[in-house]
């Protein structure tokens, strides 16, 4: 038992003290029970349920029957699964190329501004507070064959990009839209990391004769390294779950070119009403992402320990 400095009122006998202590424990448990129940019912139980339903024939009408690995076989033999995995990988890869470096660059630019830092910070962050549905609809209009984007590109001699009407462009267009909507909130985190680098470090480097590039590579980038690492993993976890943008803007098309893994899960459940295969695929996907999350937690803990 831990030794605690006794409070002045604690001058009662050992029996009474023990009684008091267990009363305190019960009270502490009472405070905790609602959260334990809610987390249990709405997070832990669904995880268990998802695994379980992956092994049964579940169609909401008949009683569920154990079917072994049948659901897993169904989804693994679905030719669309390969396509969905490929599309998701494409989304993640484009996201890394376009979406990952942009906020870093913009954050450095903003942190360098002598004036109007607040304005720029706001300008890039604004889409993060907008309802997704407004963003998707706006971009669907921007992507029209004769919409805003093609008009702008027309000025520099690029004509008629089939943003969401061609399978070659559609996934890129999804990434562009989601980057526009999300990079501002990431940039804010980098700006915070940049703000934590002390002015004296830069002063000292400058006095020692380090030029601007040297300062960037030896001070700025190392200063952001931890945040960069954590955000890399977070971006991977987030972009693996891409779904809503496609659900609204392209409905997975054209020709399934924007069908992602999560979209396929959704289709199994709410279009074909086959909950078993949906849950089976969900379980496989969950395991993949949970391992990524575990890496994130480790990195995050490491960073906090620094």
């Amino acid at each position: 038992m831990e030794m605690r400095p006794s409070a002045p009122y604690d001058t009662v006998g050992p029996f009474k003290r023990r009684l008091q202590r267990s009363r305190k424990k019960i009270l502490a448990l009472l405070f905790l029970i609602p959260a334990v129940a809610i987390f249990g019912i709405f997070l832990w139980y669904p995880i268990y349920l998802g695994i379980k339903i992956g092994f049964v024939n579940y169609d909401l009408v008949k009683d569920p029957v154990f079917v072994g690995m049948d659901n897993y076989k169904t989804v693994l033999n679905d030719p669309l699964l390969g396509k969905a995995i490929w599309n998701t990988t494409k989304y993640m890869a484009y996201g890394l190329v376009i979406g990952y470096f942009l906020p870093i660059l913009v954050a450095v630019w903003i942190a360098e501004m002598r004036r109007y830092q607040n304005f720029f910070r706001m300008a890039v962050y604004i889409p993060a507070v907008l309802p997704g549905i407004a963003i998707y609809t706006l971009w669907r209009w921007m992507y029209e064959p004769q919409g805003l984007l093609n008009t702008w590109l027309g000025y520099i001699g690029i004509h008629g990009i089939p943003w969401i009407t061609s399978g070659t462009w559609s996934m890129f267009s999804m990434v562009l839209m989601d980057t526009w909507a999300g990079f501002g909130s990431t940039a804010i985190l980098y700006i915070a990391a940049l703000g934590a680098i002390s002015e004296e470090t830069y002063e000292a480097a400058e006095i020692d004769g380090a030029g601007v590039w040297k300062r960037i590579f030896h001070i700025t980038i190392p200063g952001m390294k931890n945040v960069m690492l954590v955000l890399l993993v977070l971006q991977l976890i987030g972009s693996a779950q891409a779904f809503q943008s496609m659900f609204v803007v392209t409905e997975g098309g054209p020709n399934n070119s924007t069908l992602t893994v999560l979209y396929l899960i959704y289709r199994y459940a709410f279009v074909y009403f086959k909950f078993g295969p949906a849950a089976a695929l969900g379980t496989l996907f969950f395991i993949t992402l949970a391992s990524l999350s575990a890496i994130y937690m480790l990195l995050n803990r490491k960073q906090e320990g620094l």
């Binding site: 709405f42 997070l43 579940y58 779904f243 999560l262 959704y266 969900g282 969950f286 999350s293 994130y296």
Partner: peptide
């Protein structure tokens, strides 16, 4: 539970 990627539980959440 912080490691649980939200959207992935869509189906079991619905069934719960």
């Amino acid at each position: 539970t912080l490691m649980v990627p939200g959207m992935v539980l869509m189906i079991p959440n619905y069934l719960t």
